[in-house]
Design a protein around this nucleic acid. Structure first.
Lengths: 143, 143
DNA sequence: TATTGTTATACTCTATAACTATA
DNA sequence: TATAGTTATAGAGTATAACAATA
């Protein structure tokens, strides 16, 4: 049973790594990468926050998030405003263009994956939906 | 329904990308990366083959596979032998050390993930097991 | 001193384009 | 010519270490 779980961990790791390879490699018509979209989704769900907080939510190191924010800022998708009381910090939030992109493009983005999913039966779709919830919990749970 | 599927595709993409980030970033005591392990798994399951064939199975471009094979060769985990009749081709196969690594280390490798999984109930584990099968089909199916 | 964010630097993974050797 | 593999080069995504500004 523990050994089964270990085997499942290995299989799951390979499956998600391989799917990620496809998703990243694929041209999507979207202006943003999955890394950028992930950060934007968190801002949308949890609201404006500092770069440090966003790095923590996304589970990346602060310098990595600095770069993601800079790229999104260059695209006009996020805005940075000074922290009202602490001069060291800044607040990052989605711009109007960022919100619009999430609203209009986010779901149309994964066309390849959507097409694949449409060939599955309802039971498989339900399984994947459940799995997404479980995987999200795995990653979100604090280390 | 189609719109639900589109939403699922977006959620699934974010979930697997985030989990992959964790899996890649984590130090594992293993001598091989997930990319290397993925190629080794394919060699183990499907047997010796040319670099081109391995690139096709793994759905990467040939130059990418060249590098993976070179790194595994440096580690002594795969061996390259000339093709018996076609001087352009070579045959890549796991070495004895490579087989041993897959046998002994592969499952112990994802310690972090295994620990997380052990905190799930049986129903969630079953769901993930089913999901792994579905995800694998998604990626394996020819584009 | 401690904290926040950034800069500097480097490594992995992947790609496309161009090259070499063989068929 | 066409094919298999490699080399050259580049870009994305991530990390750690060192720094600057502020608390």
């Amino acid at each position: 049973m523990t050994s089964e779980t270990r085997a499942l961990a290995g299989d799951l790791a390979l499956a998600v790594v391989r799917l990620t390879r496809h998703l990243r490699g694929r041209r999507t018509d979207s202006r943003v990468s999955l890394t950028q979209l992930s950060a934007m989704s968190t801002l949308s769900q949890d609201g404006a926050m500092t770069p440090g907080a966003l790095a923590a939510r996304e589970k990346v190191q602060p310098p990595s998030m600095t770069r993601v924010i800079a790229s999104l800022n260059d695209l006009g998708l996020v805005e940075r405003t000074p922290h009202p009381t602490d001069g060291r910090q800044i607040i990052v939030d989605l711009s109007e263009a960022g919100r619009e992109l999430l609203r209009d493009e986010a779901q149309a983005r994964e066309a390849w994956l959507t097409e694949r999913l449409q060939q599955l039966d309802q039971k498989s779709l339900d399984t994947l939906r459940d799995a997404v919830g479980i995987l999200t919990t795995l990653v979100t749970e604090d280390k």
